[in-house]
Design a protein around this nucleic acid. Structure first.
Length: 910
RNA sequence: GGGUGCUUAGCUCAGCUGGGAGAGCGUCGCCCUUACAAGGCGAAGGUCGAAGGUUCGAUCCCUUCAGCACCCACCA
């Protein structure tokens, strides 16, 4: 093995080998286990959030595959309607043409080209991350088979009346020219104004004052509303006001919706341009006057001077005109929520159009029940509350989009405006009994991308056909995703799964945290803190990183700031850390942590080198006599505990705890102690002892590699291939080896107790050495005083080890009443461990050290004694707790006494 | 307005159904000891956000408060 761990040298090659071997294909007749990869945007790239999420899924997949399950990780990509169309539209715009100029067919063809061109990028990224997906089953949401599923679902829902077409206010994006669902609206508080206008009464007897944040919509007002109980305006109700500028008479109405406390207590009502006003308009049968067009410019319903004007220009103009008419009362600063499209960032308009909707309430009922009854379990469970909250207040889902990229809605219109739905035109005709002589035109719109995503867990497995795959893996085992798409995706999959499959799409939903940067900020392009996962794997120089963060920005004005921050944070770019180190880093992308885990990989690498150096070409058993040492028994016992901890953590989706268990065992038990303890035996033990040590070394390491493999697939594979033969394991790849079971490595409490004694001995000496600044290499003499039989027995058994690890010249036993030379002291239970001070130790320092220890023990002792003096404690606390406390007091008292004696002795020197 | 979380060492976070708080990084000492300086050994550092309550006992359970974060929502 190379002396230093070099991830690049192993990762790519190993992945290719796994693919050649067909390791990712489900196999065996174990119980089915399936995870659906949330399909990323086909033309996008994977960001840190993906890398994190994919690592979790891969770890679970590898774990279950090793555990013998018939495991499928289903990959695929999403056509991502709006996002993809926008990207390509920008491209063609940059080329001086436009999508309208190109026409629908050519433009869609262009998107397909782009999709082909960028399609492999995500796949390559996934490969570099080690994702063990079954590539042979890769699906794209617009594959012919999946399109069949989409049309099937649409037609069935329509036949049941669960999809309908309706004219109502929708969220309209005037830049993208499409309707959006409620979920695609992001509202943020922005600063604006509240304009107070006077509307004169029609009979000229005065005026009312209305307040608005959107002056331009006044041209579409069809009423003024007041609260029915508002004394101030009681006699106005039923009278008419004259709408300025538009010069229309509109009624004053009374409606509970009005808050008398807000503004003047009078509200202008614009049913065509406000969701609330629309409802009020329905209640009062008001006229609906739409004053905007698709682009949110004013239309022909407004006075000549305003026609064709942009809404924000019109706003200024209206204010000016009202002022010149003497009808502007005042302007206040005001903070208000402004709805914007999540993709375009454009201010949305409530806009009256015909759209297709899914009746979500009906589908939500069983979806709520599935979680209530535990057929689907959220992990952590808290997220079920969020799910319920949304599901119980769900609104109908607008599924039509005025885009060109996506699944065309399977509905056709006849010349009279009749609508005919079918899986294709022929079926639509047949179902409606329409002959070929009647021309039909298909609906121009496409479906919301999330409509096809909602079918993903079964459409990818072959639905509507009843395939073998569908029978095997549906319902899937667990969905791994972030909380940000619980509504977009999770909830809708549950609704559709229950509807079409009659069963939940997954049994568990594991909601992981969001990946944040080192400052705890969410990663986003506009914050300029994004990192490409492969830049951490392979490293990146500063200039490339800056370029990545500042090109193709939606808000180019942020460029300078982002560039500066990036140069400051990564003055030398980012070094290559390797995939395994990245995968081992959970939830928080702190480069310090990635570095720590890269170091961990290096540690494992070198420990393995040590193991191989001491075993390759030697007799490692299992034939031949073997004599297990204390260390051998101990490390096997500790491995059993590590296996148990790791599996338990995996079962609870606590990958952070799994990684912690692995880290601690590997570094602080296997490397820090076991390897050190095994050195004397490996170098100069008797044959049966050496054989046992070598056997233990390769067996424990081999099992450890399997235990770690789900989280760190590459390094474990690379090492395993060399170690496995020594442990007598065949099989070519670690991927298909069984996952370690705790019961294969029995716990050994006796060995652990004895080992604790050995460790305490060594630690005691090291502490003295460290605090007295005695160089590590300087051999020391040690005396033991007050040793019991057990101590003497263990001392003799492990004298060599103790001398070696604590770097001792000698260990001698003193009788209780023997005079000891001036020494520094450590306590090993009730035994005094003495390091004679002559020439080594400063009395002052030793006194200070002992006093510090004494102070600490005194404090603890006082607390414990107080506790035991409390009769309520002794009576009420469990016997074991009281006993433990008594034992502690006894120990502390004896320790205190020893310290006092020692202090006296050292003081006497001075 | 409704909902969900969070507050523990300098920083970022663990802490399993209540029984004297841990890790990584950082800091400070001593070391190139033949697996590893991407390392070894040792140390310092916390009234567990505040105040009450329950309990023999509270970082953990309950209440209130303060601060922070996120999600949802139609107040002009």
């Amino acid at each position: 093995m190379e002396k230093t761990y070099n991830p690049q040298a192993i990762e790519v090659e190993i992945y290719a080998d796994w693919e050649r071997r067909g390791c990712f294909t489900p196999s065996g007749d174990g119980k089915p286990y399936c995870i659906m990869l949330p399909p990323p945007n086909v033309t996008g790239t994977l960001h840190m959030g993906h890398a994190f999420q994919d690592t979790i899924m891969d770890a679970l997949t590898r774990l279950h595959r090793m555990a013998g399950d018939n495991t499928l990780w289903q990959p695929g990509t999403d056509h991502a309607g709006i996002a993809t169309q926008m990207v390509v539209e920008r491209q063609v715009n940059a080329e001086g043409t436009s999508r309208r100029e190109m026409g629908r067919e050519a433009f869609v063809a262009r998107i397909w080209d782009w999709k082909e061109q960028s399609g492999d990028r995500i796949e390559n990224q996934l490969r570099r991350l080690g994702a063990s997906v079954d590539w042979s089953r890769h699906r794209f949401t617009m594959d012919p088979e999946l399109s069949v599923a989409v049309r099937e679902a649409f037609v069935r829902l329509h036949d049941e009346g669960l999809i309908y077409r309706g004219k109502r206010l929708v969220n309209w994006d005037p830049v993208l020219h499409t309707a959006l669902s409620d979920l695609e609206v992001v509202s943020e508080e922005e600063t604006g104004h509240l304009w107070h206008f006077r509307y004169p009464l029609a009979d000229g007897t005065g005026h009312v004052v209305v307040a608005t944040t959107r002056p331009e919509t006044m041209l579409g007002d069809t009423a003024v509303a007041v609260h029915p109980d508002d004394e101030r305006y009681r006699d106005l109700v039923g009278r008419q006001v004259m709408l300025p500028i538009a010069d229309r008479a509109i009624p004053v109405i009374a409606d509970e919706y009005v808050d008398p406390e807000f503004g003047s207590g009078c509200v202008k009502i614009t049913p065509a341009h406000d969701f609330n006003d629309y409802e009020i308009g329905r209640r009062h049968e008001l006229a609906v006057v739409n004053v905007l067009d698709d682009n949110a410019c004013l239309n022909r319903e407004v006075p000549e001077a305003y026609r064709g004007m942009d809404r924000f220009d019109a706003r200024r103009r209206v204010v000016e005109e009202m002022e010149s008419l003497g009808l502007l009362e005042r302007i206040e600063d005001h903070r208000l929520m402004v709805p914007r499209g999540d993709r375009s960032g454009a201010v949305l308009e409530p806009y009256l159009t015909d759209q297709w909707y899914v009746n979500a309430q009906a589908l939500a009922i069983p979806a709520i029940e599935a979680v209530e009854t535990g057929r689907i379990r959220f992990v952590p469970d808290n997220w079920s509350k969020t799910y319920f909250e949304w599901m119980r207040n769900i609104q109908d889902w607008c599924i039509s989009r005025q885009l060109w990229w996506g699944h065309r809605i399977p509905a056709w219109y006849d010349p009279d405006g009749g609508v005919h739905v079918g899986r294709d035109e022929a079926e639509a005709r047949a179902r409606s009994g329409i002959g070929e002589e009647v021309p039909l035109v298909q609906d121009e719109d496409v479906l919301d991308t999330w409509f096809s995503s909602a079918l993903w867990p079964f459409s990818t497995l072959g639905w509507p056909d009843r395939t073998r795959a569908l029978e095997t893996w549906y319902p899937t085992s667990v969905l791994v995703t972030g909380f940000d798409i619980i509504f977009f995706w999770v909830a809708r999959m549950v609704m559709m799964g229950l509807k079409f499959m009659g069963d939940v799409p997954f049994r568990e939903v594991y909601i992981h945290g969001l990946v944040r940067d080192a400052d705890g900020q969410k990663m986003s392009k506009s914050k300029g803190n994004i990192l490409d996962p492969l830049d951490i794997v392979d490293g990146v120089d500063l200039e490339t990183l800056v370029a990545k963060r500042t090109t193709g920005m939606m808000q180019p004005q942020l460029k300078d700031r982002i560039e500066k921050a990036t140069r400051k944070e990564f003055p030398k770019g980012i070094p290559a850390f390797g995939t395994d180190a990245l995968r081992f880093t959970f939830a928080w992308l702190d480069l310090g942590r990635v570095e720590g885990y890269r170091n961990f990989c290096n540690k494992l690498w070198n420990a393995s080198r040590f193991a191989l150096m001491n075993t390759e070409g030697f007799d490692c058993g299992p034939e031949g006599e073997m004599e297990l040492s204390l260390a051998d028994r101990w490390i096997r016992s500790r491995l059993a505990a590590a296996v148990a901890r790791t599996r338990e953590a995996f079962d609870g989706y606590r990958l952070d705890l799994a990684s912690q268990a692995l880290y601690e065992f590997t570094w602080h038990e296997f490397c820090d102690w076991y390897l050190e303890l095994s050195k004397p035996v490996l170098q100069s033990g008797a044959a049966p002892q050496q054989r046992a040590a070598r056997r233990t070394l390769v067996e424990v390491l081999e099992a450890l590699l399997r235990l770690m493999h789900p989280l760190m697939p590459f390094i474990t594979e690379a090492i395993w291939r060399q170690v496995a033969p020594l442990a007598g394991v065949e099989g070519g790849t670690i991927m298909v080896q069984p996952y370690p079971a705790a019961d294969a490595w029995g716990e050994d409490p006796a060995a652990e107790a004895e080992m604790t004694w050995v460790q305490s001995f060594i630690l005691g000496v090291r502490q003295i050495r460290g605090e007295m600044e005695i160089p590590p290499g300087k051999p020391l003499k040690v005396l033991l005083q007050g040793a019991a039989e057990k101590d003497l027995a263990w001392l003799e058994a492990h004298r060599d080890l103790l001398e070696r690890l604590a770097r001792l010249e000698s260990i001698d036993v003193l009788a209780e009443d023997d005079a000891a030379p001036p020494s520094a002291t450590a306590l090993l239970d009730h035994v005094k461990l003495l390091v004679p001070m002559a020439g080594l130790i400063d009395a002052e320092a030793e006194i200070a050290r002992l006093e510090k220890q004494r102070g600490r023990i005194r404090g603890d002792l006082a607390k414990s004694e107080r506790k035991l003096a409390n009769p309520a404690f002794v009576e009420n606390a469990p016997e074991s707790v009281v006993e433990k406390e008594r034992g502690r007091v006894a120990d502390m008292k004896s320790a205190l006494q020893r310290l006092e004696e020692q202090l006296e002795r050292v003081r006497a020197l001075g």
